[in-house]
Design a protein around this nucleic acid. Structure first.
Lengths: 229, 229
DNA sequence: TATCATAACGAACGACGTTCGTAAAGAACA
DNA sequence: TGTTCTTTACGAACGTCGTTCGTTATGATA
């Protein structure tokens, strides 16, 4: 057919070339978006846009969004500053690690939700687990109790903060829930009526309630140690 | 302007009339879809289709999807068969109620995910809470410990089942996670390497592990009762 | 019979995750 | 140096989602 001068290939791409992407770059960008805009800001499309590319480009390095979530979660755990090993008694280390996790989830909007809905698979998740197991071991909690106990502790942290941040996320109108309990018929729900203040924890700092839960679980674990193997 | 014969108004609606919708009808339909197809089956559009209408029609009775989730969750709690009050010792009633909750979440695909991500606001949630508070009261666990303890128990149930059903939902490829732990460097992660079997709980029934957690939390609560007020 | 608030609903908007076909880039090899 | 082939990049599109808007029907009230 009739050709132009030399058949100069006109690139259909908008930009001529680009430094290549990478797995790590994608995860870091996703995490930064999560920090800045919360979970709604961390979508495949927005990550791609932040990297100045299209969403389909990400699928070379990541199987799907769910998998990326797991990587981001593990990357976030990498930010954890765990207390030095052999630094103070085991309880200080145990609670110190869990409180560090607490603060991490608290200060990154949307990270708590991510923690609840994805199981992080990566070396940083292993590090946290190992750290907890180590402290529990020193406490004399071993084997099954230790393995399940570490899981229970981590569940507790993420669940606690997921609920705590649900108001900030606008997920649930907290006043409406409070109203449901407040208007509960004292005849049908006498205990609820009596425990109003405690349920919504009066003026108590969230940190105190969190700490209370840690104590409860720990005491339970120590108790279970005595009961059976 | 020039008119046709009589300006017969041609309805733009496909159907001439319909029996009206209702809040309850919508919630029930949503719950049925949740039972049949899991959480992905319970979308505004699919609920509307099941009711033979359009999605916008639902917004007369429900503010948004999130609110509908809360109603559906509470409706699901209404299906709970709690042990008779004053039927057996308090521990039997306490664990009986929590295990009934356990089974409810276990048998309805997607309900565990719903339980984790929404705070049910309704009379059925109140009933469950009241029931737990009553049993805890009889155990001598009162006030702050009772209020927070009931919450902790319910968290535990939904978190436990959310993780347990995450494989069935295809959310996380369980073998991949297991592989992460199995291939953990024994030098860096000695405790993890040693506790392989316990972490993935060998051949242990999920029910047994669940029950273990209930015991731990309960023992912790009983212990905390002695320690402070 | 006229008025008016409520309910129903079609259409559309803007987001989402993901897939597909194709173009560019770079490595391997001749 | 020239050719082949695998990997990476990416525009376009598909189907889905929640939600909003404007309009029409409905049924109670005046």
């Amino acid at each position: 057919m009739i050709n132009g001068p030399k058949r100069t290939i006109i690139s259909r791409r908008a930009r001529p070339a680009k430094e290549p992407l990478s797995h790590e770059q994608i995860v870091q960008t996703a995490y930064r978006l999560l920090e800045d805009e919360g979970l709604p800001g961390m979508t495949m499309r927005k990550i791609a846009k932040a990297l100045d590319t299209g969403p389909s480009s990400l699928y070379v390095y990541v199987k799907n969004a769910q998998e990326l979530n797991a990587y981001v979660m593990d990357y976030a755990l990498g930010q954890l500053q765990l207390p030095q090993e052999h630094d103070g008694p085991w309880k200080t280390r145990l609670f110190g690690a869990l409180e560090a996790y607490f603060e991490l989830l608290q200060h990154r909007p949307g990270l708590a939700e991510l923690a609840v809905t994805t199981i992080p698979a990566g070396v940083n998740a292993l590090s946290l687990t190992e750290y907890l197991l180590s402290a529990l071991h020193e406490a004399g909690i071993v084997s099954r109790s230790a393995a399940w106990g570490a899981d229970l502790f981590m569940f507790y942290v993420s669940s606690f903060l997921y609920e705590k941040t649900s108001e900030a996320r606008g997920t649930m109108p907290m006043p409406l829930i409070q109203e449901t309990y407040r208007s509960a018929d004292p005849a049908r729900f006498p205990h609820i009526a009596r425990l109003q203040q405690e349920i919504f924890s009066g003026n108590i700092e969230a940190r105190e309630r969190f700490r209370w839960g840690l104590e409860v679980i720990l005491q339970g674990l120590l108790q279970a140690k005595q009961d059976n193997a």
